[in-house]
Design a binder for these strands. Structure first.
Lengths: 193, 193
DNA sequence: ATTAACCTGTGACTATAGTCACATAATCTG
DNA sequence: CAGATTATGTGACTATAGTCACAGGTTAAT
């Protein structure tokens, strides 16, 4: 499989994970190619997969009164999903869409749960995924609760430089919760200092 | 124990939970009284407990350049903790402090983990707690990513009315990320419509 | 009951961000 | 490569939020 080596390394970065567990996991996995603007998840659907990203990137967003508000970007070697919908079986409130051609490895929920019942390691992996996701979301929440637009940009520069390298200014502005004109002016102010 | 009935009901609202599991859980539990301004958790400490709130309420906050920024309020029949620190063993970046006299039931991490190894139900409870917490944090994140100050106030009115009933305007303002003067003016604007 | 501490509302001014309009630059597509 | 589309930068103006100052109200403690 294309992303095999990376995927095993990624899983091992979360929790101890043996070759045997990896073999056990195979039936839950499926490699998939996506074109730009293909949906990984649509609002109103139930999220029944985790997507491990082998290549390309995607974003999560809400559409409110016709306006698109980005809420996250997901790159190579990360998991994209909606944990709330995945965990609870409720409908997703947001979309996830490919921003480029992508290669992903899909973890099918039902099969994953079956395997977790048989394997302590796969079960622990699930918990680690949730905890990792919750930690990231919590960090992002404090960024929005505590920081101004300019400080939020600085957070991206320091902690998520990948976003600024690969995502257009207007898309980043939507993510940071400011208008693109404002973000452009913040950058200008910072240049002149 | 004072909060016994409520606690069992609370646990059962998360996951199926038998009397036997509850008995098994007892050694991890400790009831504790707190006075106003007692700390449940201090910045720099590792969070080694979950606090189930029997009576009273508390808040989580950061102190940045001498200014206090509230990030959450926790009331009766809820769990207060820092999942990130509790899960990872890292130092907490924020404080949790009693806003009134409180009665809490403390879940000791080490003992809880021991018991979880022996009991499927206790283990499932742990996962439910994390998922519930992650879901709440994610919802709050979207409120801050998507909504204006006025819309954030409306979110509190609709989804978290308890906060507005029991917490002072200036404390709520700090939580919503606006100055108390601004929140006062938003309220006035809304009154006159 | 009286002082002190805290909370709330409001005016006047400043600072920051949004809106609208337009010019130019970069990228995509046939 | 040419036209179309998308992205960015900027000016002028408006709207929203922050700052500072102060007054009156509420609450708590001795």
């Amino acid at each position: 499989m294309l992303g095999e080596k990376n995927l095993l390394n990624f899983l091992r970065s979360l929790t101890s994970f043996s070759e045997e567990s990896y073999a056990l996991l195979q039936p839950a996995l499926e490699e998939r190619e996506l074109k730009k603007n293909d949906f990984l998840l649509k609002e109103g659907e139930v999220c029944s997969s985790l997507f491990y990203i082998v290549d390309g990137y995607c974003k999560s967003y809400y559409e409110i009164d016709g306006e698109i508000k980005n809420t996250g970007f997901f790159f190579e070697n990360e998991i994209a999903t909606n944990i709330q919908s995945f965990g609870s079986g409720e409908k997703s409130k947001f979309n996830i869409i490919a921003c480029e051609t992508m290669t992903v490895v899909l973890f099918a929920k039902e099969k994953l749960f079956e395997i977790a019942k048989q394997s302590q390691e796969v079960e622990a992996l699930g918990r680690s995924c949730i905890r990792l996701y919750a930690t990231k979301q919590e960090e992002l929440l404090t960024v929005f609760q505590l920081y101004s637009a300019q400080e939020r940009l600085e957070y991206l520069e320091n902690k998520r430089p990948e976003i600024l390298k690969r995502v257009s200014l207007s898309q980043v502005a939507s993510f940071l919760g400011v208008k693109r004109e404002t973000l452009s002016r913040i950058r200008r102010r910072r240049m002149s200092r």
